[in-house]
Design a protein around this nucleic acid. Structure first.
Lengths: 133, 133
DNA sequence: GGTTAATAGTTAGTTAAGCTAACTAATATA
DNA sequence: TATATTAGTTAGCTTAACTAACTATTAACC
């Protein structure tokens, strides 16, 4: 918690240079690594409700970063990055990478990996608690 | 980030049982461990702006969990937990402890400590970046 | 010692990002 | 075929942050 606030603060500064919000960035990130996704898929991944995702997606669409593609089901509206979205993702990736390298300075790779593992384990505990209720 | 959302979600559920918000809980926590504090001190600790802290404090005051004590400076309005605040803190502490134990199940103490160390190191990097700009 | 700086805290108004409840349209299932 | 489920949207609310501009008090400078 004490970590999250300053982290988000700095990340937002980096993203602000590109006119992006954190919530939008996570979607670009997902689509850059997954080709296409539906709203429900994204909402589950980010652990937010559907209306929250609707708004984020609309904003990305208006910026021209994502577009809808036809899905096998007429209820679904899968989406993917546009060429512009790809371009912006790649650009932002550079500054975010630099930022991450910066804040991880002096921490061994081994320690980083172990910390990530611990956090993943906690996340999984949390998620399994959710579904079992 | 993927960890923070489900974590905050569950913590809020636990705290909600006691009619508390996360932002309020962190202040109770600080005051339970520090006897007294000023608004500025709390704001710096939590990395939020003063008006944000004003609101949280007012709410805690209205709930009767904290009270102001005279400070050496008439600008300052230091505060401390009331007897009720102490009582509530202790009660909530129990459920939060149980919650934390729950989500850390299966992670060795050693790993936990190392992860905390890594997170502290990152936090310090972030904070030092802030002041050097 | 009096004027200027800085500091503690407040007020007013805005914003990002989440939520719930209630809905439509399309598909699956009993 | 009627009912239930799923994908997504709309409307309205809430938490927790922010900035700008303010008052009151103390510290510092010449």
């Amino acid at each position: 918690m004490l970590l999250y606030r300053p982290f988000e603060h700095h990340l937002n500064i980096e993203l602000g240079k590109h006119g992006l919000y954190r919530a939008e960035w996570t979607i670009l990130y997902y689509l850059a690594n997954n080709e296409s996704a539906t709203l429900v898929e994204l909402a589950q991944y980010q652990r937010v409700e559907k209306p929250t995702m609707t708004r984020i997606i609309r904003s990305l669409e208006e910026s021209g970063f994502i577009e809808h593609i036809p899905g096998k089901d007429r209820r679904e509206k899968p989406m993917k990055l546009t060429a512009l979205g790809q371009k912006v993702y790649t650009e932002v990736r550079v500054t975010v990478d630099r930022f991450e390298q910066d804040i991880l300075e002096g921490i061994s790779e081994e320690q980083q990996l172990e910390a990530i593992e611990v956090m993943n384990a906690i996340r999984n505990q949390l998620i399994s608690k959710e579904s079992s209720k």
